[in-house]
Design a protein around this nucleic acid. Structure first.
Lengths: 142, 142
DNA sequence: TCATGATTCTTGACAAGGTCCAGTATTCAT
DNA sequence: ATGAATACTGGACCTTGTCAAGAATCATGA
């Protein structure tokens, strides 16, 4: 948005060994501005900022940023992948079945139990993804 | 498969207010035979049993059966929807990042905590979906 | 500051997984 | 047995995402 933001974002990319391009800066800032947006929504937002971007560049940038752990990808059942910049903590999501609104939720039982299923079958588990499904207050009152 | 199975399946459909058709019986039995299969895989299996079925009928049947709670749909990131007939208990899944094998896992912390996020934001939660991501023993030893 | 090579972006084709629609066939209740 | 309700078929279509080849951009050393 402002050049101040852009500068910080540039530094963030550099610090993480990601080549700096206008597209990547714009994508990263778009995700910050609207967490839980889809690739398509982000593309639209970026076009408002820098005029134009190809679909492929959106997907490429998002992949790189997810790989470098600057973004997190969430892929709820029945909808396109969504992205957020809140990384490094073990938080989960709550999604409304009707309007698909997504909210962040802190880990229910304090991080460790989240990674401990009752029987691991020899699996080496690195992530426990939790999604709470239900109805948001707005949709309940209808 | 055998007519004995078919009869039981017929009854199950009737008991749940689902109109009985050859396609639905075949779908339901295919899911029993191969849990965690995709719609496409199930279609193939059904074709082996009853000769032919349209793609649409597969999707329609699966939707009805999921709605009536005779099947459960699981939609892990990066792969097509999968179906299982183990319904009514609160079990979760563990998926190998490499080979995508899916295993059932009983609820980690005993059902109740699973449905209790730390802050519900007014949501009325009806399901906590948990997916453990990691690597299966086979893929670890490579 | 500029040339240079490496990386990234654009464009267009393609694929998987689902959905929509109109017409036909089946099932169920009377 | 028959008609109304429901389900199935086949084909077109949409969305989300990937692949590939050439053009543009970025980072580095001189």
């Amino acid at each position: 948005m402002s050049s101040g933001f852009t500068e910080a974002t540039t530094q963030l990319l550099r610090d993480n060994g990601v080549q700096v391009t206008a597209q990547r800066i714009a994508i990263l800032e778009a995700v910050k501005d609207s967490p839980h947006a889809t690739a398509d929504e982000l593309a639209d937002e970026v076009r408002n900022q820098i005029g134009t971007i190809s679909r492929q560049a959106v997907y490429d940038s998002l992949s790189v940023l997810v790989d470098k752990n600057l973004l997190r990808r969430i892929q709820p059942a029945g909808s396109a992948a969504r992205y957020e910049d809140r990384v490094g903590d073990n938080h989960h999501h709550m999604i409304c079945r009707d309007c698909r609104t997504m909210h962040d939720v802190d880990c229910a039982v304090d991080e460790v139990p989240c990674l401990s299923p009752s029987a691991s079958h020899g699996f080496e588990i690195d992530e426990a993804e939790v999604i709470y499904w239900g109805r948001c207050p707005a949709c309940q009152s209808q």
